[in-house]
Write a protein that binds this DNA or RNA. Structure first.
Lengths: 153, 153
DNA sequence: GCAATCAGTTGCATTTTGCTACCAATCAGG
DNA sequence: CCTGATTGGTAGCAAAATGCAACTGATTGC
C-alpha cells in the first residue's frame, strides 16, 4: 500500500493531535497486544489467537485493520501455512510505545512482590527506563512542556 | 486510596504481562486522551468534555475509573467549582507513554506537509526522540530484545 | 482416502458507547 | 428573594463493538 492510502477514508477523532491519531490507529483493546506479540515472534493467526486469547472474529478484523493501516504486512508463507503477518517499519517503530507501556505497568500495575514478564536485551539485562528529554538530553516533565497548536506560517 | 486497593477486584487480561495490565487500566478509547488533556492543564469536567468531545456519561464513567485506578485524584476545588481532577504521581508517570504515542503519530499518522500540534520544552523546542536503550545506553530494537516469562526462583 | 488442524466466517447474545433530554446545585444580577 | 445562565452530572434508549460457539473450506499428516 502507498503511504497516502493509509489516510483515505479515515475520520480522525482529533485531527491535529498526534496522540489522538495514534489512538485512532492502535487505541483499541487488542491492537497493541497483537503488536506486542508480533514483536515477540508471533506470525500466524493461531500464534496471535493463543497468545492473546482474543475471539477469532475480532482477531480476524484486527489483523485486517492493522494491515490496512500499514502496521502489519500480510505475506504468503514461505511454505506450509497460508500466510504470515509481519510488522512493517511503522509497526516496528511502535516499539517505544510498547516499551513505555511495559515500564509503566511494571511500576504501577503490580503489587509489591508480584512477578511479571521482563523485556531483556541480548545480555539478558533489563532495558534502561525511557525518559523524555529535551534536545540537550535534560529530563522534561508535564510541568516543563507545553502543547502548541498547529499553525501555518 | 491505598496502593493495594488498586489491585482488588481487577480481572487482568493477561496477568503477568505489564503491557497487558497497562492496557487494562488505560487502554480504552478515551482514557489516554483524558490523561493527555490533564497533562496539558485540563482540570474540570467541562475542560475534559470540551477538549475531547467525549459523551458526558462516558466522561463521567472514565473520570471515576481513572480515580479508582489511582491515575487521577478528585479534589474539592479551592473555590467556586465543585471539584477538580488532577494527575497522581502514577498519572504523571504516563508522560513517557503519551510522548511515545505523540512521536509515533507525528512520524506515521500525518500526510507529508499536514500540520499538527507540537509538544515543546520551556525553550519552545521540540523534545528529543524517545529511544529504547539497554543499560549502557545503546539503542535496542525488537530484534535485540526478548520477553522472558516470570519465574519464582 | 480420512482424520486433524489451521484460518478464518457467520449468527446471535451481551456489553459498551453515544446521543439527547433531564435534573440538581451554584452563581450573578437586579 | 427571584430569575436565568452555567456547571456537573444522571437516565433512557438506540447503535455499535465485542465475545462465544458453531460452521466452512483448504491443507497436512498418515
Amino acid at each position: 500500500m502507498t503511504h497516502a492510502a493509509r489516510f483515505d477514508g479515515m475520520d480522525w477523532t482529533d485531527a491535529p493531535c498526534p496522540v489522538a491519531r495514534t489512538l485512532d490507529l492502535v487505541g483499541d483493546r487488542w491492537s497493541l497486544l497483537i503488536v506486542r506479540d508480533a514483536m515477540d515472534g508471533a506470525r500466524s493467526f493461531g500464534d496471535f489467537q493463543h497468545r492473546t486469547g482474543i475471539a477469532r472474529n475480532i482477531l480476524s478484523d484486527r489483523l485486517r485493520r492493522l494491515v490496512e493501516r500499514g502496521i502489519l504486512d500480510r505475506q504468503p508463507a514461505p511454505s506450509g501455512r497460508r500466510q504470515v503477518y509481519v510488522l512493517t517499519e511503522a509497526g516496528r517503530d511502535l516499539f517505544a510505545v510498547v516499551v513505555a507501556m511495559r515500564q509503566w505497568g511494571e511500576r504501577h500495575a503490580f503489587a509489591p512482590g508480584e512477578v511479571h514478564s521482563v523485556l531483556v536485551d541480548d545480555d539478558g539485562l533489563p532495558l534502561a527506563e525511557l525518559r523524555p528529554t529535551d534536545s540537550h538530553g535534560s529530563t522534561v516533565t508535564t510541568d516543563t512542556t507545553t502543547v502548541v497548536p498547529p499553525h501555518d506560517d
